[in-house]
Every structure is written in C-alpha cells, then in structure tokens.
C-alpha cells in the first residue's frame, strides 16, 4: 500500500503543529459557508493555493490530482446551480469546493500520519463513553493495517478454491458464496489475534477498578 499522501519538503507549514493545521482547516470551512460572497471565497481559495504552492512548496501536480478527483462533481454542481442561481451562483459553489478540497489536501500532504494519529487520540478521549481507551487507538490502527492484506489474501484463496471445484457462478450468488466462508474465517482469525494479544498482556493496562463480576473469559 502506498502511503504517498504525505509529501516532505521541510517547509514551515510541515513544521507547524498538526492541531493548528486542522483548526485552520475547520476555520476555512466555516468561513466559506458563513460568508458566501465571491470575493471572500475567491480570496480564501487564492490564500490556500498560495500557502500550498508558495509556502509549503508542494508540487502543483499534487493539487492538480485533487482537482481532477472532484472534476465530475464540479461539472455536475456547476450545471445544477447554474440553472438555478445563474453564473455567479455556479462560480461560488465551484470556488468553495476547490477551496475546501485543496485546503484539506495541503494539510494531508504536510502532516505525517503519526502526528494526525496523535490528534485523533486526543479527539477520541470522549469515546471513553463507548468504552474505548484512547491509548488503544494505535493498536486498533495497527491491527486494521495488518488485517487488510490478510482479508484480501483469504478472499483470493476462497475464490481460487471455488474456481478449482468448477464454481464460476456470477452475480449475487458469487458474492454470498465467497463472503460467508470469508467472514467466518476472518472472524476466527480476529478471535485468535485477540487471544494472542491477551497472551502478551494486551489488557494489562485495563482500568484497575473493573468489578470482578465482569470477568473476561
């Protein structure tokens, strides 16, 4: 898996704290919706492009790719809003979309995954309500990245095994005949993974105040 969304250039934008960049991103999105005038939205877009290309020294092709990714939406939205609200309305919507998407792209390209994960851990503290300890976020992410190739590999193996027995059904049946054995296999694998983690003390930092009646099996 390519993790090429981060582009290191060592600029001041890269060195800025991740939390500050995310906060700026939130501010940008609030401004472009709260003050829907062409000068303001256009100004924000210009500032984003200036910061991205000038200060952060990101390759223009990277920003170009982001624009291409939403090109269809741009065209569709421009047509619909053009019919309803005229050229000015269409321009506003298009500029707003570009400003938001590019601002987010600049933050992603200038901030390391680990820094963002740290912010996520901090943001997740309220999830204690759901029984999630923020310190476990790193473990969750590691497990997910580990499971992705395993799930893909086992899906392929099941497909091969069925092809070997002459199974070339298509459509909905093909999906269910692959998905059911796959899910049973990977659920068992996840269970074993959890056992293996527990065997290595994964639940050792559990809150000590756990009532004994909720003992784990």
């Amino acid at each position: 898996m390519t993790l090429a969304l981060y582009v290191p250039t060592g600029s001041p934008v890269h060195r800025a704290p991740a939390g500050a960049k995310l906060l700026t991103l939130v501010a940008v999105s609030v401004v472009v919706f709260a003050v829907p005038t062409l000068p303001v939205v256009g100004g924000v877009l210009a500032a984003v492009v200036l910061v991205g290309l000038g200060v952060a020294r990101l390759p223009p092709a990277l920003l170009g790719r982001q624009v291409r990714a939403v090109l269809w939406w741009l065209v569709a939205l421009a047509i619909v809003t053009g019919v309803v609200g005229g050229v000015a309305g269409a321009a506003l919507v298009v500029l707003r979309l570009l400003a938001l998407v590019l601002a987010a792209a600049v933050v992603t390209a200038t901030t390391r995954v680990t820094e963002l994960v740290a912010v996520v851990e901090w943001l997740c503290s309220p999830l204690r309500v759901f029984g999630v300890r923020p310190a476990r976020i790193g473990l969750l992410i590691a497990m997910t990245l580990r499971f992705i190739p395993l799930v893909a590999e086992r899906a392929e193996r099941i497909r091969e095994a069925q092809a070997a027995r002459g199974g070339t059904v298509r459509g909905i049946r093909a999906w269910t005949t692959t998905a059911v054995p796959l899910l049973v296999q990977v659920l068992q694998m996840a269970h074993t993974t959890a056992e293996a983690l527990d065997a290595r003390g994964a639940d050792d930092d559990a809150p000590p105040a756990r009532p004994p009646s909720r003992g784990r099996r």
Binding site: I141, T144, A190, A202, R216
Partner: peptide, 11 residues
C-alpha cells in the same frame, strides 16, 4: 472493551 471486541472492530 475486550481485546476481542477491538479485533472485531479492526477487522
């Protein structure tokens, strides 16, 4: 949350 639940969530 048990480790097993975390593994299912990640899965």
């Amino acid at each position: 949350m048990k480790t097993r639940d975390l593994a299912y969530v990640a899965l």
